[in-house]
């Protein structure tokens, strides 16, 4: 990561965010418990920076993204965009802010309206925000298509006429239309085949250079994340367990969970012998285990791990780990 990025101000600042979903039971729909999907996450994304968010299904990474977009109501904590807290913003400020915050979804088949043509899909937001008139639509659309490597013969076609990779390019064109500062990519390349995935990953990286975009790149695929991101945050059961420079997280992970996660990836040319195979399943986020949430599957857990919760601690510059045994392991 360049020094310019390190010193630039926080674009997005999340502080102790909790997003819980009530579990209701009985005739009066009494709230009996909560699914603690996101349970006390703090992180920052700076201008032009790409932060990877990894973790297994159910760890809360998508809920975190949905909370940032205001799609899931938050329990406590705060999300601030350019210093302004999102949940206290007035509606017109929120509207202006949304221009700077866009999203690319995983499934290019369900995230594009099948009844809209490409030109309508990618210029809708420009019209809604009053940035262009109807007359400039085509010029704007052609420019966007050009940015994502699609020809202008695509303008008046419908999403079903395109392959998965092309559809994802349309999704990218829609996301960059308003020249946002931050794009949330929620498993944006996970549904694509490896050769097409590489094309879209390269496209996202080119656009980052061109428009100085910041990404929150959510993925379960650590090898893709490593290629794209400056920093990586690892999530387990609603909490961050490790965050640090991408190369350090992959080549020298410190948290036992991150280590298991990295070693679990089958790689060409690497023998699976030294693999850390975790036992058991991820516990339910409705009743997370006490103390360190990973202790039920951790080979290094001590009695103390079952008792005290772990907060992120510095282990190196810009590298934090939530594990009480990090120094001995």
């Amino acid at each position: 990561m360049s020094n310019a990025v390190a010193t630039s101000p926080a674009l997005l600042k999340i502080t102790d965010l909790k997003t819980w979903f009530p579990i209701r039971r009985g005739v009066f729909s009494r709230t009996v418990a909560h699914v603690r999907a996101v349970d006390g996450v703090s992180l920052e994304i700076r201008e032009g920076e790409t932060l990877g968010l990894v973790g297994e299904s159910g760890c809360g990474k998508t809920t975190l993204a949905r909370s940032i977009l205001g799609l899931d109501p938050i329990q406590s904590g705060s999300i601030a965009f350019e210093g302004q807290a999102l949940h206290t913003m007035r509606s017109e400020d929120l509207r202006r802010m949304r221009r700077d915050l866009q999203v690319i979804f995983q499934d290019p088949f369900s995230s594009l309206n099948p009844r809209m043509t490409v030109i309508d899909i990618i210029t809708e937001a420009l019209i809604v925000h009053g940035l262009i008139g109807n007359a400039d639509r085509e010029t704007a659309a052609i420019e966007l298509l050009n940015d994502v490597g699609l020809g202008h013969d695509s303008l008046h076609r419908y999403p079903h006429e395109f392959s998965g990779g092309q559809r994802q390019r349309i999704g990218v064109a829609r996301a960059i239309a308003l020249k946002p500062k931050l794009i949330l990519c929620d498993e944006a390349v996970s549904a694509l085949d490896v050769s097409v995935q590489a094309q879209v990953v390269n496209l996202l990286m080119d656009l980052r250079e061109k428009y100085n975009l910041a990404y929150l790149f959510i993925s379960h695929d650590l090898s893709v994340v490593r290629h794209v991101c400056d920093r990586i945050a690892v999530m387990y059961l609603g909490e961050l367990v490790e965050i640090g420079p991408a190369e350090a997280i992959i080549s020298a992970p410190r948290h036992p969970y991150t280590r298991a996660l990295v070693s679990a990836i089958p790689q060409v040319g690497v023998e699976g012998k030294g693999r850390i195979v975790l036992t058991g399943d991820v516990p339910s986020p409705a009743s997370p285990p006490p103390g360190c949430r990973f202790h039920t599957r951790c080979a290094h857990a001590l009695d103390a791990c079952r008792q005290s919760e772990q907060a992120l601690k510095d282990v190196a510059r810009a590298h934090q780990v939530a594990c009480m045994r990090v120094d001995e392991l």
Binding site: V194, Q197, A198, R226, H227, I250
Partner: peptide, 23 residues
């Protein structure tokens, strides 16, 4: 050959991935 090259890896150079153009 192209398929093997386009796999994102956990080691080696980061950044641009090799792609197979077209469909």
């Amino acid at each position: 050959e192209a398929l093997i090259r386009s796999i994102p890896k956990l080691t080696g150079a980061r950044g641009e991935l090799e792609t197979i153009d077209g469909q």
